[in-house]
């Protein structure tokens, strides 16, 4: 077999107009619709109370002291360190001093945590429902159609990706079925959405999940603030301190000499 036989399938040109184009257009429009639906579904982030702001910013202050300690003269650094460590250990900055030392309440019973979960649920629902509907629609009307031929050759591993819904073993990999075209558009339309909606859109799942919990690392609801304070106090205590102003005058003279 010197030359591989080139498969030719005579397709109706109407396939392009009645299947390929509708699927693509529907997918793009669903993405845009989902973007605006997500904006409508989003609840405004809940406002922090004053003690909560204080708790969070006091922790940030300690972190600032630890990272930028070098700008302080030794005496004022030691004074600040002593104050922060003892205040942290006594839990002076806690928003809720009574809850100190008690085990964390069940997140299910906490209304704030429930709200966050509801937000995630909504996002997932906005993703799942249209996907299920569109997939059902494609399966009902267009299953088994071979709608296009890729202009480049591919290895047989792509067969399952490009020809789902078509049960022919010998078909060349370059032929794409309608259901596969749906999957390709589902995962590959992000640049198109970026072009239409701007870069931080919520048209696809990936960006949506990242937006679901912003800044959860710092002081998310799942972390105990008291533990954070205690560990920060420990960090401050073991900090290796060096004053940046030591010998600065000699450095400057050397720089301009």
């Amino acid at each position: 077999m010197a030359q591989p036989i080139v498969q030719t399938i005579h397709r109706d040109p109407a396939l392009f107009w009645w299947i390929l184009l509708p699927i693509t257009v529907v997918m793009v429009l669903t993405g845009i619709l989902r973007h605006y639906a997500m904006i409508l579904l989003q609840t405004a982030p809940k406002k922090q109370t004053l003690p909560q702001i204080r708790q969070q910013r006091s922790l940030v202050r300690g972190i600032n002291l630890r990272t930028n300690a070098r700008v302080l003269p030794p005496a004022s650094f030691q004074a600040r360190k002593a104050f922060m460590v003892s205040a942290y250990q006594e839990g002076k900055f806690l928003a809720d001093p009574e809850a100190r030392g008690k085990p964390r309440p069940n997140p299910m019973s906490d209304p704030a945590a429930m709200e966050g979960m509801m937000g995630m649920m909504k996002g997932n629902m906005a993703m799942m429902v249209p996907q299920t509907l569109i997939m059902g629609w494609i399966n009902a009307f267009f299953s088994g159609f071979v709608i296009m031929k890729l202009p480049f050759p591919l290895t047989p591993q792509f067969k399952s990706m490009l020809q789902s819904g078509v049960g022919t073993r010998d078909l060349d990999v370059r032929w794409v079925s309608s259901l596969s075209w749906y999957f390709l558009t589902l995962f590959g339309l992000q640049p198109v959405y970026n072009f239409i909606l701007g870069s931080n859109n919520s048209a696809t799942q990936s960006t949506q999940q990242m937006a679901a919990n912003p800044g959860a690392g710092m002081m998310g609801p799942e972390q105990d603030p008291d533990k954070l304070f205690l560990s920060e106090a420990e960090n401050l205590e073991v900090l290796e301190y060096r004053w940046v102003l030591e010998g600065v005058e000699d450095r400057l003279v050397a720089k301009f000499a």
């Binding site: 003269p73 030794p74 005496a75 004053w243 102003l245 005058e249 400057l252 003279v253 000499a257």
Partner: peptide, 21 residues
């Protein structure tokens, strides 16, 4: 001891050089 916290005072020659600079 209180004033030693801020480190030893700078050298006279250095300060003169800084003034010129």
């Amino acid at each position: 001891p209180e004033e030693e916290e801020a480190g030893p005072p700078p050298k006279l020659a250095t300060v003169k050089k800084l003034e010129e600079l």
